[in-house]
Nucleic acid binder design. Sequence first.
DNA 1: CGCTTGCTTGAAGACAGTCAAACTCTGTGG
DNA 2: CCACAGAGTTTGACTGTCTTCAAGCAAGCG
Lengths: 231, 231
Amino acid sequence: MPNDQTSDLGAFEGLSPEEVRTILSGTSTVRLAPGDLLFLQGDPADRFFLLKQGWLKVTQVTADGQKLIVRIVHPGEFFGFAPALQRDEYPGSCEAIVDSVALVWPRNRWKAVLGAAPSVTLSIVQAIGRKLDEAHVRLREMTTEEAARRVANLLLRLWSEAGESALDTDGGIELPYPLTRQDIADMSGNTLHTVSRIMAAWETQGVLGRGRRKVVIADLDALKQLAGFDD
Amino acid sequence: MPNDQTSDLGAFEGLSPEEVRTILSGTSTVRLAPGDLLFLQGDPADRFFLLKQGWLKVTQVTADGQKLIVRIVHPGEFFGFAPALQRDEYPGSCEAIVDSVALVWPRNRWKAVLGAAPSVTLSIVQAIGRKLDEAHVRLREMTTEEAARRVANLLLRLWSEAGESALDTDGGIELPYPLTRQDIADMSGNTLHTVSRIMAAWETQGVLGRGRRKVVIADLDALKQLAGFDD
DNA sequence: CGCTTGCTTGAAGACAGTCAAACTCTGTGG
DNA sequence: CCACAGAGTTTGACTGTCTTCAAGCAAGCG
């Protein structure tokens, strides 16, 4: 099972102190408490970020209030890089799930960061590309798989992304950040109710552990089975 | 075959002849007839491409045969850049819709192309980033909007991507490449039947024109209305 | 002219969304 | 320390949209 460590902090490894200085020049740091909003959909995209600590969620809302969680941001990942795409506004909102710390660049530093060193360029492109790849996989799932499988796939993906930070508890593997059923619904393209039904069923089957605002995978293999053995 | 046409590819604008030479070194050209497969899902990802002429579709297939058209590749776009993401295999298949011509790089040239000039880097990152953005929008649509809206949005997106190459016919605006209802279904996450019903209805309403394997937008504003642009 | 490919249409059934309500934790304040 | 508020979750009944199954039609090509 690939623990795709998208650690872009790793990208800064092997760089000369000077290069690192170039990259970090002009940055500041932001601290966020759970529920804090870093930027909102439609805000002027004048900054971009790298998450140092914690977990964030990036959401998009439709005109009629429907919500979708686009991604969970893990430590070491760039996010809010709309400025890099010549966008004036952020296409989504960003909210802290837990206490978090992020590095902040002003928009105009993007070019310099990207060009600081070939290895940085390469790694950023790879990171974005991998996101694209993942988005396509999700896209396929959303449209072809049915509700339960989408949830199973989602949980597996979250587990895989969490990598080493997933907690080993007595009941099984627990995701290192809290998620409500509503969150899971917004990520898997379901309603809260459907998700609740699905997960309740899996709890009684022993695939998942019980818990409010948390996800515990009790039987990983069973979950993979439910996801349709591709992953 | 000489590569003298590549000068009008947007990505290479404003580069010195020398930079262009660097980028193009080691490339070859492929010609494809409609239906030709350039690479298949699971093939070793040893090449990446830029489309010079024509239109291609990139598809992903699930284990059980469900298909999704991930994207339509337009002239001037990079595609099949799995090698750039350190992937061993292509995550999807690529098929020519019409007669097409593509530029081919061997996998190991990626680093050199990316680093050839800052403007190239920037433009590649922007292109991939925009794709990611678009994928997220699609993701949201797929999960929140209903079938008819998804189709409307898809058609609008295709029209917008086609840009100047969209044909102005007597009946309205026609997409410059043929698409079956099945294709549209595979792009919008529906069944052929649902799409057929939806489009047939729109034809009688005068929003779309009739035609096999082609899409004609007769009333653009009406289509936007149907897509849910209430702003 | 017949066959393949693309498209349309009808009917039935299922999955998941909506509406509605009750239950259970958790933290807070009296 | 208990009651209460509120968020989070579960569950049931009903409904609607889309899929599935099934059939037939239309157009292009050899």
